[in-house]
Computed example of a mutant assay.
Amino acid sequence: MIRDLIIRNRSYRRFDSAVKLTDEQISKWIDLARMAASGRNMQPLKYALVTSPETCEKIFPFLGWAGYLSNWKGPAEGEHPVAYVVVLNDHGISDNHYCDDGIAMQSILLGAVEDGFGGCIIGSVNKSKVAKILQLDETLEILWLVALGKPAEKVVLETAENDIKYWRDEEQVHHVPKRPLEEIIVKLKS
């Protein structure tokens, strides 16, 4: 069921680094993004797959992990992502990617979750450093990185009362408050 997949699709930030992913596994998930809707059907997004442990470790220091967890420096050794999908806008096709990036990343992550993996969309990226590591062509703009692996943490949803900031308890369970449905549906005057 799509509801179950969406609920299980959390922002996982800690992974079992012993469980690897192949380019073929990730390509299957990118194929889901390829088949999804695209503004004007321009399809300007491209994807760089990073599965080499050496390249993953070169990229890792240039990422930010969890803004609300100010005392957490990110995944510890043994909990690093085993792969990344670098989401790129190809300016040779179009300068505007509309909302394609969100649709694509959700599709990739739902595919990963369905196969027993998970990930985290990372927007806090030193894009120039990562582009240099990957030796990207100038027409390819890094939009996001999707960190991937076998989740090594428990993430639970709960109803937000006053605060929407995610947090971790003493057992390192990651809590994600969500606004109640009745709070986010706007009732129109008709």
Rank of each mutant, 00 (worst) to 15 (best):
M1A: 03
I7Y: 01
R10C: 07
S11D: 13
Y12A: 02
R13V: 08
F15K: 12
S17F: 00
K20R: 14
L21Q: 09
T22C: 08
T22Y: 05
E24Q: 11
I26G: 00
I26T: 07
K28I: 07
W29D: 04
W29E: 06
D31P: 00
D31G: 05
L32G: 08
L32W: 11
A33K: 02
R34D: 00
M35E: 10
A37S: 15
A37F: 10
R40G: 02
R40C: 13
M42W: 07
Q43H: 07
K46L: 10
Y47K: 12
A48S: 13
L49I: 11
V50N: 03
V50G: 07
V50C: 04
P53V: 12
P53N: 10
E54W: 09
E54R: 08
E57A: 15
K58M: 14
F60M: 14
P61E: 04
G67Y: 10
S70L: 11
W72A: 06
G74I: 00
H80C: 03
V82P: 01
A83K: 02
Y84Q: 03
Y84H: 14
Y84P: 03
V85C: 04
V86W: 02
L88Q: 05
L88Y: 01
N89P: 14
H91Y: 07
I93K: 08
N96A: 11
H97L: 00
C99L: 15
C99A: 15
C99H: 15
A104W: 03
A104E: 00
Q106I: 09
I108V: 06
A112T: 10
F117M: 15
G118W: 08
I121S: 06
I122Y: 02
I122P: 05
G123E: 06
K127N: 08
K127P: 05
K132L: 15
I133R: 10
E138M: 05
L143Y: 11
W144V: 09
A147M: 04
K150H: 02
K154A: 00
K154F: 02
V156A: 12
T159F: 08
T159Y: 06
A160H: 12
E161M: 00
D163H: 07
I164D: 11
W167K: 02
E170L: 12
Q172L: 12
H174Q: 02
H175V: 03
K178A: 07
K178W: 03
K178S: 11
P180M: 05
I184W: 09
I185M: 08
L188D: 07
K189W: 06
K189R: 10
